[in-house]
Design a protein around this nucleic acid. Structure first.
Lengths: 171, 171
DNA sequence: AAAACTACGTCAACATCACTGACATAACCA
DNA sequence: TGGTTATGTCAGTGATGTTGACGTAGTTTT
């Protein structure tokens, strides 16, 4: 089953290139919007995960994004200072800073996601009715095996209930 | 057909996140190799397209990568100076600089691609036998409509015949 | 042949986003 | 009390992208 023929390799290279082009364009729409706010792609990533997984800790975010805390600090600080994200001390462990989007933050996150969701919906439809489960399997298998449990955990915790009001206890 | 239900949106968001993680890990292996050479992801992209589409012009490369010539210049110069890529004046239009990989360049390109192809092959297998055509449709549809003809042209021209020897006429 | 345009290279300044290393603070834990 | 943990922050650096301006060789147009 390890067909390593020239044909196979050419096919795989084709997918590698398609993936490059697809991802390039996937990020293009939000990048354009972000520019108007003086933000970059890093802000999008942070805002996305804070919005979608409300209440995650700074450590969780570092884990998800795979960047250093110094890298995160800059963008997170900007998002907090400009009122897109608020922090809240953890109730069990008060060292933890749980992150929540403000209303403004949620609105921006949704605005950034909108063109991407439209694109994804169109691409899924173009790929056919059975595409979704197949694509899910493919993408999951593309993720490093050691990372998969972590990713599953994060993605399963999407509608994490807001412990506090999620607002009003800004630093 | 514009199912915009909460369920649909959640599913699409899931794909958006999976795509992020998948692409992140897709670039991880080559990034690690590049570090040993003092190169970055930009070098990989240039070397990849020069290797796979031997003889393309600088203008083609700019078009494919969607970056400015000043950005390209830095990495391209390094790859040329260090013997991974050679230039050759176009025969029809001698202003054009056609780009070719050296043997060393080809070897590095293949080494960088290897883990990605392994990953892709495994993911395609995990996704099932009908995955390839579906995935191809999906990825193509993810690309901006205006860009698709350009991308098709580039990808169709993969085994572009080397006009010269492809070596020996370095600047 | 002169003028205009094209392909490419290059200099300079700058922004974003990542990194390493070091150190500070507050809160938890033993 | 002392050690560890979660987070924040300062300082310096590197990779990659940007805009703007200018130069040079080669092609095309008039």
């Amino acid at each position: 089953m390890e067909a390593n023929s020239s044909y196979q390799e050419a096919k795989l290279l084709e997918f590698a290139e398609l993936l490059f082009f697809a991802y390039r364009d996937f990020t293009r729409d939000p990048d354009a919007i972000l520019k108007d706010f003086g933000f970059g792609r890093a802000h999008h990533r942070v805002l996305h995960f804070v919005n979608r997984h409300s209440g995650l800790r700074v450590a969780d975010l570092l884990d998800v994004l795979n960047i250093t805390k110094q890298s995160l600090a800059r963008v997170l600080k900007q998002l907090i200072d400009q009122g897109y994200i608020v922090q809240q001390a953890g109730s069990a462990d008060r060292r933890e800073r749980l992150l929540f989007p403000t209303e403004t933050g949620r609105a921006l996150a949704e605005r950034l996601a909108a063109p991407q969701l439209v694109r994804l919906a169109a691409a899924l439809e173009a790929a056919g009715p059975q595409a979704a489960p197949i694509l899910r399997k493919f993408l999951q298998a593309m993720i490093n095996a050691e990372e998969r449990p972590k990713v599953s955990t994060i993605m399963a915790a999407s509608p994490l209930p807001l412990s506090g009001s999620g607002e009003g206890e800004t630093s």
